[in-house]
Design a protein around this nucleic acid. Structure first.
Lengths: 366, 366
DNA sequence: GCAACTCTTGGTAGCGCTACCATAGCTGGA
DNA sequence: TCCAGCTATGGTAGCGCTACCAAGAGTTGC
């Protein structure tokens, strides 16, 4: 027909002709099969198969003003945390016909806002964003987006629509409590560059120690707010940082008896630093991490950490999106996936200072 | 105009009206500014700014039969290897107006073929695929795709169009040679599930040892071809595997004096296994890894590894794509980024068996 | 038997953009 | 002066699909 070079691929009209129906019926049979009688549906499906018809998604998007792209915004691609989340998302998207478009916000809320502007103009089917740190403008855009929006990896009382995650503050608090219970008293904290969620973990650490009368700000080792660190997301936390922060801590505060690392990779570096200095772990210094990457269990001594459900976070978010796109309800707006305190050898200082009595004494003293 | 509900967003016609030109001229001014006179271009740009016009990419794609999506196929999202590659790709795409669509092929060539079928039907602007393991059908599709295709993370004499990577075989060979030069003689190999590239590294290991008359197949520790491992890409190599494989090796072949691990995460596990058994590294057993993740340098002892240019691989691939899309040449079809043998303490067995003389003796003997 | 209703199907008219061709204006050579 | 050969601009006709409305077929109620 047209003098314009077509792709040669069969179009919906070809299918319609072959099945002897109207184009719109083919369209319906593909998108809402229950609106088409079984007989026609069958012959349409046959025609589709015979012609090898695949719908043109760009045409569909143009006509319907809606794509099948789920936009996913993550603050970092490097850290295992988010690659596990992405794995969950990819596992969750299978056989849904949805596509995924990942955007790296680089822990930069202003950048995220700009990216979101573009993303929303493409009419995504849904948006999955990390955390609750969106700018007011971003939040307003997401509220008006007219599509499912799921926040992940954090919790808040006031989600945009739905949030799936866990409380970093509580996780930080419980791990710190575990260290206290294990008999440690001068419990330090090591951190790389801290984003909101890292800071929440720190707050948990601080609260737990303050309650126990053990908080000592001098026991905190943090990487300065180096510009290089802030712009390169893969430098936020490295084992080298953990190693050096631990060496510095051992030098400055040789009396430190435990270290809670904001991230497993820091904990790994800290362990190696102890090895290098001949500091016995867990007896002289206990070490705990956060994330529970697989090497924590394989370490010697096996390292305590907070297991968080990264994969599930991505997977459940994707499933929630799919449910909503299939006409389901939003369901529970706040889904707390929890976490687990993995108590392993690196914080198992047996036989010393029975925890409960000791805490009582300290509280009495303070 | 139309009785159909429009988005309310300004269209190219609005811009054209405001600038007092034809729609097609606006289109040209946006895509090929040099084809429009400076005067018109200026007033069009002004109109675009005033109206806040953003082109509708779906309409553009439908009309031009070409999108601005670069399809990226990676075999795994979990392993740091590919997250670094992706970081390079994302860093390379900035300010290009291109979008990225990542597909996880899960080291499954048949799945990749199916995914590619769908992907190519969406008329991507370019395709970036990992490795050279594509099926014949995949390869044929890519050859006929009519868009830039870049393979990454491997080398071959016969790229589809362009390949950017390095030789895994040579990397494996050189690291093994380093172990030989360092004075080790019973050099084992640990591997998780092996894909083609892992196997090439193994081939390099084997060749180097055979040349030196040192190859001993009994020194290979490999995880069985467990189905669970094959379907879950994050289980391909874990520190736990490295730990267990090393313990098994120490038990079976207590005379082993070095271990080349196919992956740093295995090396990490192996180091911990040595720590757990009190086996001194590097004096009793040397350990080398592959990838040079940041924790290798932070380890104690610092661990030798093969540094590969993951980030650059992604970045250069993206740049090559951009060049071609901007009308540039393909350039060199085979780009070898090389690798570096990072010699660190974990393979630094000083003072024993001077390497060169020893090798000479062995060659004489064999 | 007929109006009122539901269910299925189809025609028409875009969605917003760009390919293709046409046209107008300009340059330069014969 | 005229026409070929170029460049800058615009008109028209789609790209392949779906929203909207309409109409036909079947069903129910009085």
């Amino acid at each position: 027909m047209g003098r314009r070079r077509a792709t040669g691929r069969p179009t919906i009209a070809d299918v319609a002709a072959r099945a002897g129906v109207g184009a719109i019926t083919v369209s319906r049979a593909l998108r809402q099969p229950d609106k088409v009688s079984p007989a026609l549906r069958k012959s349409i499906e046959e025609a589709v198969r015979e012609l090898g018809y695949v719908p043109d998604l760009n045409a569909r998007a143009l006509a319907s003003r809606r794509t099948d792209v789920v936009a996913v915004l993550v603050p970092s691609l490097t850290q295992n945390i988010f690659s596990d989340v992405l794995r969950g998302i990819y596992d969750g998207v299978e056989d849904s016909g949805l596509r995924i478009e990942i955007t790296n916000t680089r822990y930069n809320n202003a950048l995220e806002e700009a990216q979101l502007t573009t993303i929303l103009r493409h009419q995504p089917a849904a948006v999955i964003v990390s955390g609750t740190e969106q700018t007011a403008v971003s939040r307003a855009m997401l509220e008006r987006a007219g599509c499912p929006v799921v926040q992940i990896m954090d919790l808040t009382d006031d989600p945009i629509q739905k949030i799936i995650g866990f409380s970093h503050e509580r996780a930080g608090r419980e791990m710190t409590q575990h260290l206290i219970d294990a008999g440690y008293r001068r419990i330090g904290f090591l951190a790389g560059w801290m984003n909101l969620r890292s800071r929440q973990r720190f707050d948990g650490y601080r609260c737990a120690l303050e309650e126990a009368g053990l908080y000592d700000p001098d026991l905190i080792g943090e990487v300065g707010n180096d510009e290089a660190v802030k712009t390169d997301d893969h430098l936020f936390s490295t084992a080298m940082m953990g190693h050096e922060l631990m060496l510095a801590m051992l030098e400055r505060r040789p009396d430190v008896d435990a270290i809670f690392c904001n991230n497993d990779v820091l904990a790994l570096g800290a362990l190696f630093a102890c090895n290098a200095r001949g500091v016995p772990v867990p007896d002289r210094v206990g070490i705990a991490g956060f994330n529970d990457f697989d090497y924590m269990e394989a370490a010697f001594p096996a390292m305590s950490s907070v297991r968080i459900h990264r994969w599930r976070c991505g997977y459940e978010a994707m499933m929630a999106v799919r449910d909503q796109l299939n006409g389901g309800e939003i369901g529970e707006p706040i889904v707390d996936l929890g976490f687990e305190i993995m108590k392993r050898a690196s914080t198992d200082r047996r036989g010393e200072l029975p925890a409960v009595r000791d805490r009582t004494i300290l509280q009495t003293l303070s």
